[in-house]
Design a binder for these strands. Structure first.
Length: 464
RNA sequence: GGUGCGGUGGCGGAGAGGCUACGCUGCGGCCUGCAAAGCCGUCUACACCGGUUCGAAUCCGGUCCGCACCUCCA
């Protein structure tokens, strides 16, 4: 069994062995959400992919510091505030809280540090000042712009030359830019927009600078892995590299900022891009009304994190079935005792799959093969499946405890009523009055109660 | 136009030169008073055209078709 993680690094575009900078403390930064609306399935995919990465690293190394930021100042938030007449702080506080709650529901462990952009304005101003002092940035009309040609390795992540970007530019270039590719570090605010005092007048930071500042302040440089959605690769991550490397010194290579880059693929909905204009955004909050967080999590892990994921109802339904099956086996093997040695030796195959760039679909393939062997009587040690289920629990964050069906609140008197009907039905069954028994089954069905006869008793659950 | 990723059975989804991946669904059976679950069995695959090889879904060349990014986006 290999205790070595291989990850696909988007900077070198290769699957490589992960070698930590400091193996006593692995440091990871992930670009988190802009909190102006409910978290959607795309936010969740990134959070779950990083969560698994962090869990796996924690199983190998003594300490992992995971930082994921919250963007709480941004044009989208300002727009929402103006549209709804709600103060910015109220919006960001609300959706920040909801984001954390939703992520917790789908089994995502809270990052060790979750910095907010507005808490780092002073540090951003200092960083921008330094970039101006070192001739990497310039100030025009209250704007401060990063001068892209001043960074030798610009575009190394997206593999795009500056000429290429300009050729394909679809937006009008602001006239005050020295180079078309230059981007904003600081911009002036209008009177109705939030602003902070700065050497360049009242204004607010551009989007990219916050991650450069927060990652350096919370982790120090270089850190090990920088994560984010595939769309952030360009321009956001390339801009971050440029800023951060220029802050370190002249001609610093991208590796001096983050040593590896981890990007998750996009979520599509029924084959289309998920977007506000199409109106097909799948919110975690909404999905949680019908399915458990564990089910959503399993659905997200059922395809490889780098592949595009086409979200459909059937993806969720399949996940639900698979989860029920794993839950059942977990219950069956509840009392099986395993030693630590057994745990390690039984999990080689599944661990190798996970260590191979987090190949979660392969992990499930191996696991399901085992469950089949288990039912083929004695072909598989119960200890083996138990070990593997525990492995899944720790590394994939699937608790395998919660019923995957949504739990409904049931009043005591309703419960008694249902149980009385079931008793009546079972009496009818004993008397072999099956006509009456079937009628009672129908009646319960109408009440939204699903019953299931087992050897000794009848179990039931509410389904609506 | 540029950059990158990909096309695997009804669907989802790994693999990556020779060994049934796996799951869901369908079909046939066992078991159940019925139902559900479970169990056993089972059908459709590697976009197309060439090449390399004893052997290619996997390697090489070409063709076609998708998708994403280049603009706020996870």
């Amino acid at each position: 069994m290999k205790n070595e993680l291989k990850i696909f690094d988007s900077l070198s575009n290769k699957k490589t062995n992960f070698i930590p900078f400091d193996k006593q403390n692995i440091r990871i930064y992930a670009c988190g959400p802009t909190v102006y609306d409910f978290a959607h399935i795309g936010n969740a995919r990134m959070a779950v992919a990083c969560d698994v990465l962090v869990r796996v690293l924690r199983s190998i190394y003594p300490k992992v510091t995971y930082v994921s930021n919250i963007t709480d100042i941004d044009d989208k938030i300002i727009k929402k505030s103006l549209e709804t007449g709600t103060p910015i702080k109220k919006i960001t506080q609300k959706f920040h809280k909801i984001y954390n709650e939703d992520m917790e529901m789908i089994g995502v462990e809270h990052p060790n540090v979750q910095p907010k952009a507005t808490n780092y304005i002073k540090e951003m101003i200092n960083a921008i000042t330094k970039l101006i002092d070192t001739n990497n940035a310039y100030c025009v009309d209250g704007h401060v712009l990063f001068h892209v040609p001043s960074y030798k390795y610009y575009g190394s992540l997206s593999k795009r030359s500056i000429e290429e970007q300009i050729a394909g530019n679809r937006i009008d270039v602001a006239p005050f830019k020295k180079s078309n590719a230059d981007f904003v570090l600081w911009k002036p605010s209008k009177s109705d927009e939030p602003s902070w005092d700065s050497p360049w007048g009242k204004g607010r930071p551009g989007w990219h600078i916050e991650c450069s500042v927060m990652s350096e302040k919370t982790l120090s440089l270089p850190f090990d892995i920088h994560c984010g959605g595939a769309d952030l690769r360009f321009p956001h991550h390339d801009n971050e590299i440029a800023q951060s490397c220029c802050l370190i010194g002249k001609n610093m290579r991208p590796e001096n900022f983050s040593r590896y880059w981890f990007h998750n693929g996009f979520v599509q909905v029924s084959g289309e891009k998920m977007s506000k204009s199409i109106g097909n955004i799948k919110l975690i909050n909404t999905l949680l009304k019908n399915k458990s967080g564990q089910c959503i999590r399993l659905a997200l892990l059922s395809s490889h994190y780098r592949q595009p994921l086409n979200w459909t109802d059937s993806v969720l339904e399949q996940a639900e079935k698979n989860l029920e099956r794993l839950n059942r086996i977990a219950k069956e093997t509840e009392n099986v005792k395993i030693t630590n040695e057994e745990k390690t030796s039984f999990c080689c195959e599944i661990k190798d799959a996970l260590m191979d760039d987090l190949n979660t679909p392969n992990v499930f393939g191996i696991l399901f093969k085992m469950t089949k062997q288990l039912s083929e009587k004695k072909k598989l040690d119960q200890k083996k499946i138990k070990s593997n289920l525990q492995f899944i629990k720790n590394n994939l964050g699937l608790s395998l405890e919660i019923n995957s069906k949504k739990k409904f609140f049931i009043k005591t008197e309703e419960k008694k009523f249902i149980e009385d009907l079931i008793k009546e039905r079972n009496n009818a069954r004993i008397e072999k009055n099956f006509e009456k028994a079937d009628k009672l089954r129908k009646k319960l069905e109408i009440l939204g109660v699903e019953i299931s006869d087992t050897k000794n008793d009848t179990s039931w659950k509410k389904t609506k």
